[in-house]
């Protein structure tokens, strides 16, 4: 699995976005990174999968230094659904087939094995009927499912999702999170960045709370809530309601 050891990251001539971050993501779990805007959540994801090489420290993937690994080899173990897409004017099936790029030899077309993975990925996210639809003509939720299918076609154990629910309607957010949960149950390790605290608390096994490029605390949702750190970092107050074995959270502005 991925392990980050004393990672720092800064763009040349700029102040650091990550400061000596050490963390690992438990195998087979859903881990969510939380924190205010600009605290380095997305940067942490990109550094973790070597999209942006760390300025200091090292990232280990299954015990090997990730920066010394070939990009295609990393992509066979880690898939990333990045935050913003310029939706391409291509068919869904073609987009999903790009997920097989890490397995492709130079100049080689799509193989039978690739086709099988593409079909399975589309089936799993209920996009098989959309195969000939253009990606840029899909709704926000359908588009995210198409991109998740591409990540599934990559056939990796670890999937990173960078704000997958942004700009989606509330019921689509829940649908997407149910899909994430289903993927996790089928054996995928999920690491995601979310802004929606309710979704993060409901769907995660493990939370990482960040502030100003540093990790404040990690733990289960209950541990994070009861520590009071989330209230401090987001400047909110959290109320917990329990009803028929379910726990609900209400967030309000912090009183002066």
């Amino acid at each position: 699995m991925i392990e980050l050891n004393r990672i720092s990251f800064a763009y040349p001539g700029c102040s650091p976005l990550l400061k000596e971050v050490s963390v690992s993501f438990p195998r087979g779990k859903i881990t969510t990174i939380l924190g205010p805007n600009g605290c380095g959540k997305s940067t942490l994801l990109k550094v973790a999968c070597n999209l942006m090489p760390a300025t200091e420290g090292e990232v280990l993937l299954e015990g090997k230094r990730i920066r010394e690994m070939k990009p295609k080899k990393v992509a066979r173990q880690v898939a990333l659904l990045s935050q913003s897409h310029q939706p391409p004017e291509i068919e869904v099936a073609d987009l999903v087939s790009y997920g097989r790029f890490p397995y492709r030899k130079y100049g080689q077309g799509i193989t039978k094995e690739d086709k099988r993975h593409v079909e399975e990925a589309m089936e799993r996210v209920n996009m098989a009927d959309y195969r000939h639809r253009l990606v840029n003509k899909l709704s926000g939720g359908e588009r995210q499912r198409a991109y998740i299918a591409m990540a599934l076609a990559q056939d990796t154990e670890l999937i990173f999702l960078d704000e997958p629910t942004t700009y989606l309607d509330i019921h689509i957010r829940f649908e997407l999170m149910e899909l994430v949960r289903e993927l996790n149950r089928s054996g995928k390790t999920i690491v995601m960045v979310l802004h929606d605290l309710n979704l993060a608390l409901e769907y995660s096994h493990n939370l990482i709370l960040m502030e100003a490029g540093k990790i404040v605390t990690t733990g289960s949702p209950e541990e994070i809530i009861t520590s009071g750190e989330m209230d401090r970092v987001f400047q909110i107050r959290t109320k917990i309601f329990e009803e028929q074995e379910n726990t609900y959270y209400y967030f309000a502005q912090k009183e002066e």
Partner: peptide
């Protein structure tokens, strides 16, 4: 030879890199 790579590049830098390009 590179026409498939052009498709991947068109997806944007982050997505193309995450696919191992």
């Amino acid at each position: 030879m590179m026409r498939r790579d052009m498709n991947i590049v068109s997806l944007g830098s982050d997505t193309a890199r995450s696919l191992g390009m």
